[in-house]
């Protein structure tokens, strides 16, 4: 998926996560994570984000997340929504969301 602009999704409310994605040409995937539960779940949050980006075919992006204790499925949803917004694409392809 080709990102053309900044994409923001989610909230700072509890059990949610605020995701901001920014395209960066040729820069690979760069993650910055702040979480209430970073010690226990930092690695899981990272894995979910990377997995979802891969599934969407996003390779060059800066991702900034503030996690307020979101479940994996919520993290996935917010990453996907931010990516779709950054790509300026309305129609979701559910086949690739996995």
């Amino acid at each position: 998926m080709n990102l053309i602009q900044k994409g923001i999704a989610g909230t700072l409310e509890s059990s949610d996560i605020l995701v901001i994605v920014n395209p960066q040409a040729g820069g690979g995937v760069q993650l910055s994570i702040q979480s209430k539960v970073e010690k226990q779940f930092g690695a899981t949050i990272r894995r979910v984000i990377v997995e979802k980006l891969e599934a969407l075919g996003v390779t060059d992006v800066v991702v900034d997340v503030k996690d307020q204790g979101a479940l994996d499925c919520v993290i996935a949803a917010r990453v996907q929504a931010a990516v779709y917004r950054a790509a300026g694409v309305d129609k979701v392809n559910y086949e690739v969301l996995s």
């Binding site: 479940l71 499925c73 929504a81 779709y84």
Partner: peptide, 16 residues
């Protein structure tokens, strides 16, 4: 609406 759809989709898929 777009974010809500993805939230519901992933929640349904997670079968929690």
């Amino acid at each position: 609406k777009d974010t809500a759809r993805l939230l519901v989709y992933n929640t349904l898929k997670a079968k929690i």
